[in-house]
C-alpha cells in the first residue's frame, strides 16, 4: 500500500515514514502542500496522512486540491492541537483524525481500517 505523509515538520514526517516502511508500507513524505500535489500527480497513492495546520496550504485545503487529482484517495489528519473545533472538522473531512504525538500502532490500525485491509 502506497502512502504519502505531509507535514511541515520534516524531522517528524521523515521518521514517521521510515517507521511505516518498517511495517510494510511504501511511504513517501513531503513538507508542503505544493510538493504533495506534485507527488500525487506522479504516483498512485492509496492514502494521504496530512497535518491540519501547515503554512501556505492547510491540510483541509490540500485535501480539496488532491481530491481534484485523485478522487479515491483516503485521508488521515494529524494535528498538534486536538481542539474540539479541529476534531469536528477533521472527523467530518477525513477517514480519521489523530492528535500528535501519535502511537505508530494506532496510526497503522487507522491506515488499515481506512483502506479496508483489516
Amino acid at each position: 500500500m502506497k502512502i504519502l505523509l505531509v507535514d511541515d515538520e520534516s524531522e517528524l514526517v521523515s521518521a514517521l515514514a521510515e517507521r511505516l516502511s518498517f511495517r510494510g508500507f511504501d511511504a513517501d513524505w513531503v513538507c508542503s502542500g505544493a510538493e504533495a500535489i506534485d507527488k500525487v500527480k506522479e504516483n498512485e497513492y492509496d492514502l494521504a496522512v496530512l497535518d491540519v495546520k501547515m503554512p501556505r496550504m492547510s491540510g483541509l485545503e490540500l485535501r480539496a486540491e488532491l481530491n481534484k487529482i485523485r478522487s479515491g484517495l483516503k485521508y488521515i489528519f494529524l494535528s498538534g492541537h486536538g481542539s474540539e473545533e479541529d476534531y469536528t472538522v477533521g472527523a467530518a473531512e477525513a477517514e480519521c483524525y489523530l492528535v500528535k504525538p501519535v502511537k505508530i500502532e494506532e496510526l497503522v490500525d487507522k491506515i488499515n481500517l481506512a483502506l479496508g485491509s483489516k
Partner: peptide, 20 residues
C-alpha cells in the same frame, strides 16, 4: 503549546525509531 506538541511528537518518533 502547538510548538511544544511538535517537539514532543518528533522526540516520540525518534524514540520509536530507536525501538524499531
Amino acid at each position: 503549546s502547538h510548538d511544544l506538541k511538535n517537539v514532543l511528537a518528533i522526540i516520540n518518533e525518534d524514540a520509536g525509531l530507536l525501538q524499531d
